[in-house]
Amino acid sequence: MSLLKIENLKVNVNGNQILKGINLEVNPGEIHAIMGPNGSGKSTLANVLAGKEEYTITEGSITYLGKNLYEMSSEVRAREGIFLAFQYPVEIPGVSNANFMRTALNELRKYRNEEPLDAMDFLQLMREKAKLVEIDKTFLNRSVNEGFSGGEKKRNEIFQMAMLQPKLAILDETDSGLDIDALKIVANGVNKLSNENNAFVVITHYQRLLDYIIPDFVHVLYKGQIVKSGTKKLALELEEKGYDWIKKEVDLQPINN
């Protein structure tokens, strides 16, 4: 059984059709990269998978572990193992990272009929995972993302992913705004977490991240459709030639609505 199966997915935002029939299948152990120019619908796809409410699915289906994803609230999706690393993580003053993660982890454990973690075990786990993404201990006491630099916010997303151990992680432009050192830390975090039981969908604008996270498949999203799929080579080709040749190819043909 595939982990995620998206069939002919069409999505509207405020009456505008953004996704125009997406097909994508993700199996455990795979890393998929979704690339594409600005405004092609990459973030919409990520948010739809995480269950953001402003999006209306007009056609098609998303099946996750054999279940219809529409019927799950965003918290249930998370507890079932879906994780979105946000492009723009929000700042939440007054809620500490420690309290946030402990609440999330214990909600997850409750869902699986497991006992909540006691404070010592939790703190130990948190320190261990913080080390993985090279974040300072003091960060645990600070409010979620408040006053964090762009890079710290992205590392915090990977930290949360490491804490929650999802089955399907979607990274929405996690590389944007990162310098090369931070990029390596993020990529290293992903590579350490990746195994044959989980899968990653890495949304990115640039090829750069894919030097560190090696994808099994690369898809190009343009005007709300996946217009090309291939291997790592496709990403290199895009790096070399840009998106124009794909745009040209697509724009010459009428889009099937």
Binding site: G51, F83, F86, I92, M101
Partner: peptide
Amino acid sequence: SLFYLRSRGISEEM
């Protein structure tokens, strides 16, 4: 903010 918390598995109420 609500969506962010919920996307980590935290119930709406919590």
